[in-house]
């Protein structure tokens, strides 16, 4: 099976500082893949290269068989990659439904078709009841799910999640995990998540990649990765010490 997303030797420097150093990763269709690592490991930079915010200094990023590095964020999305923001940014003065409509219109010309898709997604994310509320009036967990809904409405083949669990309480995290599992199981959605919350990573990810100082130090199934001495030393060890 060919990978849906493959990052080959992606490298990014900021003023000489190596933020991401020749990272190699493949995300298979239908998979939930997590990138973890301590703060400053280069996770967000890697994410931004995939999402089209940064152009890699070296290396290639391919999606569904064609190069996407150097494309703009909107082009990347139109190729089939949806994303969320670490600090949520729904459209505040629009209603929940309008927020999701904006995404649904991407591949639909007719209002009725877009509305139908928006409602579908709102059900999936458990937001249908709140569809007429203004986005600015939602609680943080609701806003996070709204962002996911908006991204999903663009019919992505791959969903990029940027620390979507950050700031959520454990029960809310479990609810999010359940939603993503269900989406993955029922629609075959591929998910690449960048995550700090280990509880979510262990529950969701089928494969994990660990970044440290911009480089890959381990990769594999979550249970193996957390036992890897290098990982424990650089990341989990440091975390445990705190």
């Amino acid at each position: 099976m060919t990978a849906l997303l493959s990052v080959t030797g992606a490298t990014k420097r900021f003023r000489g500082l190596l933020a991401v150093d020749s990272v190699l990763l493949d995300v298979q269709p239908g998979e939930i893949f997590a990138v973890i690592g301590p703060n400053g490991a280069g996770k967000t930079t890697l994410f931004n290269m995939i999402a089209g915010i940064y152009r890699p200094d070296a290396g290639e990023i391919s999606f569904a068989g064609s190069r996407i590095d150097g494309l703009s964020p909107d082009q990347v999305c139109r190729r089939g990659i949806g994303r969320t923001f670490q600090i949520v940014r729904p459209f505040p003065a629009l209603t929940v439904e309008e927020n999701v409509m904006a995404g649904a219109f991407l591949h639909r010309k007719e209002r009725s078709a877009a509305l139908q898709r928006a409602h579908e997604v709102l059900w999936q994310l458990d937001l249908f009841e709140k569809r007429d509320q203004l986005a600015s009036s939602l609680t943080l967990p609701d806003r996070k799910r709204l962002e996911v809904a908006r991204a999903l409405a663009t019919d992505p083949k791959l969903l990029l999640l940027d620390e979507v669990m950050a700031g959520l309480r454990p029960t809310e995290t479990d609810r999010m995990v359940e939603i993503f599992r269900k989406l993955n199981r029922e629609t075959g959605l591929t998910i690449l998540l960048i995550e700090h919350v280990m509880r979510a990573v262990m529950a969701l990810a089928q494969r994990v990649l660990v970044l440290h100082h911009g480089a890959v130090i381990a990769q594999g199934v979550p249970a193996d990765v957390v036992r890897d001495p290098a990982v424990i030393h650089s990341y989990l060890g440091a975390e445990a010490a705190v």
């Binding site: 999402a51 964020p73 909107d74 949806g82 923001f85 729904p90 991407l106 908006r150 991204a151």
Partner: peptide
Amino acid sequence: DEEAARAIG
């Protein structure tokens, strides 16, 4: 939000 708009294509 222009950046968020770009992110949905």
